[in-house]
């Protein structure tokens, strides 16, 4: 009851149910923003069980969602001005689609929540509106058999819920299709970026220290020179793989994600080589340039390949197939690159 979006209470035959507001407050939006950037995503959950929205009665529809706060917010916001019950099931704070894939948004969990909330006493109908993206984890016919409630899958995008309700619980084929438009790809970039940068933070000091070793001159000058080149190359690879690839995804050549990352990776590597063309005079400079020409594409294609996890259309069989080819090549390029770079310090 003591959650900020609870604005009252509704008496039902099964007890008191919190009444919630459909309005998202600044705090809700700030929470979503932080979750997108991977900050404090622990406990980004809502309490389990039944909630009431609007002027509910025993005939009002029942919507099922995950206990991930962002899923819950999205649902209540898109139901503004309507009446309904919201049944929050335990997905361990994970969004609907991921939870369905993991099996936490499941038939059993829905059946259990129906029983705990005594839903059959609250509503007279026997229908549940379950998000379509929960379907990998939920068997509609099993829910019916075990609980008596018939599952109707709602549209994929919550903004279509209004249409769906007005059309008598029917969605158009477009509403059933998961697309991956640019806006959706862009909001996924922060998570990718934060993850990559976390690893980069460990590598950056190593680049400076090793960059400062070998050859004549002061440690600090060399550290700055070679270390900074390394850091630039690293950050450029991360931008190419975790920002450019997601944004340009449909237009990059190739179907495999690692292949899609090749073009941004090669361009990033070329930029580094051009910026460094003054060093192409001695063995050390040449080794260093070649090293980054190998390392940058290896890293970029790896990060691009990792975006399969965020994408909405890759199959596990496909990912395994592309990895069988890409990973060995990435490992070879990266190992050769590291050896050449170390060699460039020795040759200096």
């Amino acid at each position: 009851m003591d959650q900020p979006f609870v604005v009252g209470r509704v008496r039902t035959p099964a007890g008191v149910v919190p009444r919630i507001s459909p309005l998202l407050l600044a705090g809700d939006r700030w929470g979503s923003f932080k979750a997108r950037w991977g900050v404090g995503r622990m406990h980004y959950t809502v309490d389990l069980g039944l909630y009431a929205l609007g002027e509910v009665g025993p005939e009002s529809p029942v919507f099922v969602t995950a206990n991930y706060k962002m899923s819950f917010d999205c649902l209540r916001e898109s139901l503004a001005g309507r009446n309904g019950w919201i049944l929050v099931v335990d997905t361990q704070g994970i969004n609907v689609w991921c939870a369905a894939g993991k099996g936490t948004f499941s038939t059993d969990e829905i059946v259990r929540r129906i029983e705990i909330a005594r839903l059959a006493d609250v509503v007279t109908h026997r229908k549940l509106i379950v998000p379509q993206l929960a379907a990998p984890g939920v068997a509609a016919h099993e829910v019916k058999r075990l609980s008596g409630f018939r599952v109707v899958y709602g549209p994929i995008r919550s903004k279509d819920l209004g249409y769906f309700l007005d059309a008598g619980l029917k969605a158009t084929p477009e509403m059933r299709q998961k697309t991956f438009p640019i806006g959706e790809r862009v909001v996924l970039i922060p998570v990718e970026l934060v993850e990559a940068l976390k690893t980069a933070l460990i590598i950056i000091p190593v680049l400076f220290v090793v960059g400062g070793l070998g050859g004549p001159g002061s440690f600090w000058d060399k550290a700055l020179d070679h270390g900074l080149l390394g850091v630039s190359a690293l950050l450029l690879s991360i931008v190419a793989g975790a920002v450019v690839t997601p944004i340009l995804l449909p237009w990059l050549p190739g179907r495999a994600f690692a292949l899609k990352g090749l073009l941004p990776g090669v361009i990033a590597a070329a930029l580094i080589a051009v910026a460094r063309n003054g060093a192409w005079v001695d063995l050390s400079g040449k080794l260093e340039t070649v090293a980054w020409l190998l390392l940058v594409p290896a890293l970029t294609t790896y990060l691009s390949m990792n975006f399969t996890g965020a994408s909405t259309y890759t199959s596990l069989s496909g990912v395994k197939k592309e990895m069988r080819v890409a990973v060995p090549l990435q490992v070879i390029a990266a190992s050769a690159g590291i050896l050449l770079w170390l060699g460039s310090r020795l040759a200096a």
């Binding site: 979750a35 991977g38 995503r41 406990h43 994970i94 969004n95 919550s158 909001v187 996924l188």
Partner: peptide, 29 residues
């Protein structure tokens, strides 16, 4: 085993320490 938990800490057998990422399904429903 699943993507959404790659940020999960290894010791997160304890549910409270889970830090799931919202990767797939960004349209949130």
């Amino acid at each position: 085993s699943s993507c959404c938990c790659i940020i999960e800490q290894p010791e997160s057998a304890n549910r409270d320490s889970q830090a799931p990422a919202d990767r797939r399904g960004s349209s949130c429903c």
